[in-house]
Every structure is written in C-alpha cells, then in structure tokens.
Design a protein around this nucleic acid. Sequence first.
DNA 1: CCTCGTAATGCTCAAAATGAGTATAGGAGA
DNA 2: TCTCCTATACTCATTTTGAGCATTACGAGG
Lengths: 333, 333
Amino acid sequence: MEQAAVVDLTAVVVAVTQDQPRVLVTPGQGRASAADRRMARAELGSAALDALPSGPLEHRHRTLEAGLRAWVEAQTGTRLDYVEQLYTFGDRDRMSSGPGRSRVLSIGYLALAQEAGSALAGDALWHDWYRYFPWEDWRRGRPAVLDRVEKPLRRWAGAGDTRAERTARKERAIVAFGLDGTAWSDERVLERYELLYEIGLVAEARRDGLAGEGRAVDALQEGQPMAADHRRILATAIARLRGKIKYRPVVFELMPAGFTLLQLQRAVEALAGVRLHKQNFRRLVEQQGLVEETGHIITATGGRPAREVRFREEVVLERLAPGLRLPIARASE
Amino acid sequence: MEQAAVVDLTAVVVAVTQDQPRVLVTPGQGRASAADRRMARAELGSAALDALPSGPLEHRHRTLEAGLRAWVEAQTGTRLDYVEQLYTFGDRDRMSSGPGRSRVLSIGYLALAQEAGSALAGDALWHDWYRYFPWEDWRRGRPAVLDRVEKPLRRWAGAGDTRAERTARKERAIVAFGLDGTAWSDERVLERYELLYEIGLVAEARRDGLAGEGRAVDALQEGQPMAADHRRILATAIARLRGKIKYRPVVFELMPAGFTLLQLQRAVEALAGVRLHKQNFRRLVEQQGLVEETGHIITATGGRPAREVRFREEVVLERLAPGLRLPIARASE
DNA sequence: CCTCGTAATGCTCAAAATGAGTATAGGAGA
DNA sequence: TCTCCTATACTCATTTTGAGCATTACGAGG
C-alpha cells in the first residue's frame, strides 16, 4: 500500500556575476545515474551532462533544508545563505527508473549566493543559466532560437486530434511564447520548457522516451540539456525568482555589500532577461528607500562616477509589514 | 544511507459559502494517528480533532496530484478542479513518530472548490477556517484573541538570552502581529502560527512536546487544533491564497457561474480577512475587464437589485500574457 | 587643453491608477 | 407612501507609471 519513496534534494544556487545570471553545476559524469549515462551515450555523444548539486535525504538530516545545505556544501564547497523551497516533483514515470523500483521524489530548492568569495570544491562551477534556456534572454532583443522554435510549435498546435484540442494547444503556445502579438511574459519559464519538452524540442524529451504523444521527436534540440530533471527544476527556479524580485527585495542577496544603481539594474535585468528603463528604475529604487549611500564614489564606471549604495536592512521590516497595501482596494482580481 | 520516506498527501480544499471561507475536514477520530488520539485524550479531553483529507502516496498514483485527488475523492466524495502544490514538510522530529521509524514527508496542496453542489461522502464537512485561526479575521475589526496573545508574545520576546536574541524576537513578533503601530499583514498567516507554536500558545505545541524552548507551555490554547500538522498546512494554504488573489483571478474558482459584484467582494473579504472599499473594488474589477454582465438581474439583494455578472474566461489569456507589465520599470525592489 | 564616449543624475510631463467620498436609483417591507 | 438597504454613478485630489530631455563628470585620445 504505502509506498516508500527515495527523496532527492536538489539545489538551484544562483549568483549574478558580470551581468550574467549563473547557476552552480557539477559536470554530470561523476554523479550521473545510469539513465543519465545511457542518455549521454545514446543521444548526446559522450558529452557529460551538467547537474545541479543534489543528494538523497538521509536520516541524519534533521530538516529537508539542512539536508540540502549539507549536500551543496559537500559537493561544491559553498555554504548557503538564502534558501527557499521550490517544488516537489514526483511523477511515477518521468524520473524514476523502471517499474518495481521505488519512486523518486525530488524536492527542488532555490538558493541565492554570490560568486565572488565562493571557493568552489571539486569540479563544481558556475554557468550562465541562459546556456540552458537561450530563449529566455531578451536583453538584446528577441532571441533567435524563437524563430527556429515557432514553426514546430505551430505544427504541434495544428496537429491536435479534435478541434477543441487544437484550440487549446494554440492558446497554450501563444500564451507561453508570446506569438501573434501577444506579449512575452518573463515568468512563464516553466511553461515554456514543459511545452518544448512535450513537443520534443529539448534533448531530455528524447531521453525520457516521450511515448505519450507518439509523435516523432523533432530534430531540434534547443538549449543545453541537464542530468535527470534538473533543467525542469532550474526552470522552476528561474520562474520563481523572476516573479519574486518584483515584490520582495531579494536581488540584494545577490549583490556585494556596496554597489552602484546601474550594477543593481544590470543584476535585475540579468535575472528577468529584459532591459529596464534606467531613470525609472532608479527612481523606483530610491523613492522606495531600498538603498542608502555609503558615501563612496565609484569611478570605474566608464562614464561619470557613481555613488556607491548599500541595501537598507530596515526595509525588511518596513516593507514586509505594510504588505497589506492592497486589501483595502486592490485585493480583487 | 538513503532513507526511504513515507509520503503523505494532504489537501486544503477551500470554498466560500455565505461569506465565510471554508475548508473541507473530516473529524479526526476515524483517521487519527496514535499520536493524535493520545493528544486528544491527554490535552483536549476526548474531543476529536479535525483533519484535512489526506492519505499516503501509493504506487498506483501516477503523479502526486493524481494521488491527492484520489484520496480527497475517496474520503470526501469531492472531485477537485483547481489544484496547486503548496509545500513539502519533512522535519525529522516534528511529525514523524519515534526514532527508528521512517521519516514522514507531507506534501500539502491547495484546492479551490464550491460548496454548493458538492455531495459530501462519509463524515466529511465544511468548516469555517477562522475556527482554527480566530486571529486572522479582521472583517469586524481587530479580533479579541489578539489582546490575549499580545502579553505572552511580549514576554517571550523579552525572555531571549542575549540582547541580539531579544531584539530579533521582538522584531519577529512586531512584524508578524502588527504590534506597536506596525500594519497588520494579511499574508503572514504561517509566520503567526509558527510563532504561536513556538511560544506554546497553540495546542499542537503542547502535544508535540516543544522540548526545544524548554519553556513552560502557556495555558492559553488559541484556535481549534487539528490533527498532525494539518493546521500548519492550512496556514500555508491561507497565506498562499491571500497572496494569490491579489494578482491572479483565482477567486472565480470559488464563485458560482453567475454572481453579483458584492458577492464577489464578500468572497474576497472572507479570504483576505479584511473589509474592502466597495466603490473602488467594483471599479477595479470592472475596469480590468474581469467580468461581464449576464443580463440577469438579482433582486434578492436586500436593497436595489443588482446586475448579475460572470467571469470572463478570456482574461486568463489576456491577463496572464501581459504579465510582463513590471519589467520595464517596476522590476526592481 | 579640448573633444568624445559613456554614464550618472536631475527634472518634466502626460497618462494611469489609487484612495475617499458624495449623490442618486430601485426593490422589499412596514 | 415612507424607510431601509444595497446597487450604481460620478468626482476629486493624490500618487504612481511610462517616456523622455537636458546636464554633469571622468577617462582616453589627440
């Protein structure tokens, strides 16, 4: 009856360095499961697959989060500060191995860190996250990948069995990828990845068989794949973080003690994958009292020197308390 | 090494009826664990503890969500529509039984339903959720419970060992409960419950031993307790839902096909636990195109008849796509 | 020293979105 | 018919956005 499950803790550790969002990964080889190695051989040559730091929950771990921290530290030498649970994945067929084997549950976590000062252990390293999701970076305009993806997407939408099915698919494609003039939504990262997976446009779909649809897997394999369902977990993390920076001062976890407003803006842009209006951005940050001047002047800006600022710790108090701003009117929708 | 865990799926099924937010519960007796029964006898007389519908993940469940739906249907006769994963709890000591026993993971889910038309099976029934969280309902002003709670809260804050500890505690209490003029935040439901648990102001704390603090458990036992860690899961659900209604049109999942704007407002108020400004509320809903008139007139309003409206399904498309409103300026914080 | 290039900053302005009310309309019931 | 109780319509003063324009300052090249 009750089924014992093996629980895997997986961390998406994020940092922003040189205006690029990075994730902490370990080349998959060492920790790859049999399935991963099979995949590596069969479909992707013998290229190692990047993997997120992760490990099984053990009895010595008092809490899930403690277990996660322990694994990340052991595998990458990084001690985590900000940590937040993301989602628990547990489809019977998608990740666990053959029948009979007990189910694998993976609990994903998002951690925010700073690359500077992190002495990495072993083969762990930081990779730009857009390497895995090239279609998510709109900072220099619409990514070219989208042109390659659009046709298969529309083909899939039109291939539904019933009329209703076709409408639903088309709607899904349009909303997720902002087709036909619909606006691109930076937060739909997971939906986009899931859709590409279903259509067979990402390597993991081929590996997992994708028997469901029965359709031939497309030749296109966009973005670099990851071990196990790590790319899916990473997508979840990006989506969550992109949503969160909009209403909670979390970017600061990724910044050094002192920074300029442009540096802050670049960090947000890196995460959100879009460019922001400079003047309005600083007005927002300043008027909200999120930062205060340190008194220092940074001259290495390439232009006029900038004032150095730091995060105002007090806002955590001020801001999180008055959270009730909306109820008295906006609470609807 | 790897530890096999038993996974429990627990559902918080919410509905709003007669302006009250309800949760689907089953009197704990039947499904209570040994620990629950012990608690019931020892601390709470032989009163049965309400429990959320829940059951262990089994191999026949293809996905976690499918398992959840199956259990809810079996235990309450309710077929769920909107379902969303909340959080996975897995502290070694808090919920699982004695040492040696395998760990229990509980995955909480939030489901939105409508009480009308749900034919309940067995002993399942709908209860006002404020029965478990009396301090969360501010619709008729500041709840009286808060007066009783404030003193122990301050005593706890002042009882920290170090100065830093006392400051931290005080800050936590102030932010969570809106003391000293700080605004009350409707979304901090979980923080408030956890704090009361730590201080020993909720019955579950006494049951679980609360050895950590070593402090005498307070005599006050606010709100009705629930089986296992269900009250914590419910708190998580309320917090999530209160946050979500502010930026996603989810209230409609709780409304019948046709309704009046005041009914909608009352539903939101029931969930958020606060009163809203009527004119501004309707302006918001209308201007955002969330609803459209059905053409019917509802005369049973107790006053001037009201136009009946229904949710505009299209907004899911319109609204969720343009989600990118903020990036171009607001994306900071 | 003067001129660019590149940013940092300061300000302006019109268009929404908010927060708070005031005023009027229309049934049900006494 | 009068009264009570909402439903609806509108106003009005602020704030908050979205978009730009203009000015200021350093470093590098000439």
